[in-house]
């Protein structure tokens, strides 16, 4: 059932989009009235279970009735960087292989790539 599978993905991003809108709305200082939020800057690790296009799609739909109406969701994708706990090599993981590139050790630490963070919002002057 392809539609069902697609539905699952979209829904997942829908919940995340709702959280983004909540946090971003919360971040508008109390003393500012009638603000226009132009951008919401988000950092998404490539290992996070989020598809940027789906997230933007959901964000645009549900932002309509909020102070974030018309805001652009700017997604900065973050590479998956790992460090070997044995030989301390650091490298960027580009395919699903999670052992050390150099010494093949399985004891590695993921330094980045799991982000799902709101970095900032930008308000029109």
């Amino acid at each position: 059932m392809r539609a069902g599978v697609l539905g699952e993905f979209i829904l997942h991003e829908m919940g995340i989009a709702m959280q983004i809108i909540e946090i971003a709305t919360d971040s508008i200082p109390d003393d500012m009235e009638n603000v226009i939020v132009e951008r919401v800057n988000l950092k998404v690790g490539k290992l996070a279970a989020v598809v940027p296009d789906s997230l933007r799609f959901c964000f645009d739909i549900i932002a309509k009735d909020t102070p974030l109406k018309g805001a652009k969701l700017v997604i900065k994708e973050i590479d998956v960087v790992a460090r070997c706990n044995d030989c301390h090599t650091e490298w960027t993981i580009t395919e699903p292989v999670f052992s050390c590139k150099k010494c093949k050790s399985g004891s590695i630490e993921i330094l980045s790539g799991r982000e799902l963070d709101i970095d900032s919002i930008e308000i029109a002057e």
């Binding site: 959280q19 971003a24 132009e38 799902l116 970095d119 900032s120 919002i121 930008e122 308000i123």
Partner: peptide
């Protein structure tokens, strides 16, 4: 204040 004329407010929070 950004070059684009917008005012940037740092949030830095995990979405989840």
């Amino acid at each position: 204040v950004k070059k684009s004329g917008t005012r940037e407010i740092k949030v830095v929070r995990r979405v989840l």
